[in-house]
């Protein structure tokens, strides 16, 4: 039981963070807290992707001492020695997407606060019913 949890702790952390973010998005009344929940949700995903790309004792996938195409074919490369960089590269894009979402959401929150004078969801709904 405990081995299952400890050996895959990165997945447990990511699942736990996803749940925290999801709870905040659904249950919180304050829109800014919802936005923070959304950020936690996105960051949980980023942790998840980064952790699947991690490897103990491996190095960056750059082969030293080889320039251009000459000589590359003579070199024996053990794929196990290198980290797969793709999940990390994907997450660079996902971070940009996350920043853009946060930017749009913050701009919307400024608009909402200026119009209704509050960020509490129930008060805004009250105000909209008038």
């Amino acid at each position: 039981m405990w081995e299952v949890i400890l050996s895959k702790y990165n997945y447990w952390i990511y699942a736990f963070m996803l749940m925290i973010g999801f709870y905040a998005m659904m249950a919180k009344n304050n829109l800014l807290k919802k936005l923070i929940g959304m950020n936690i949700f996105q960051w949980a995903l980023i942790f998840y992707f980064i952790s699947i790309g991690a490897k103990k004792g491996a190095t960056v996938p750059i082969i030293p001492g080889v320039h251009g195409h000459h000589g590359a074919e003579h070199l024996v490369v053990h794929a196990a020695d290198y980290v797969n960089p793709l999940p990390h590269v994907l997450m660079l894009t996902a971070i940009v997407v996350g920043v853009a979402t946060t930017g749009i959401a913050l701009a919307l929150l400024i608009m909402i606060y200026r119009r209704y004078g509050t960020l509490e969801e129930d008060e805004i709904i009250e105000e909209l019913k008038k």
């Binding site: 959304m38 749009i104 959401a105 919307l108 909402i112 119009r115 805004i124």
Partner: peptide, 11 residues
């Protein structure tokens, strides 16, 4: 109300 609807759409 569109700003509030848009925020819910963002979430």
């Amino acid at each position: 109300g569109a700003d509030f609807a848009a925020f819910r759409y963002v979430i």
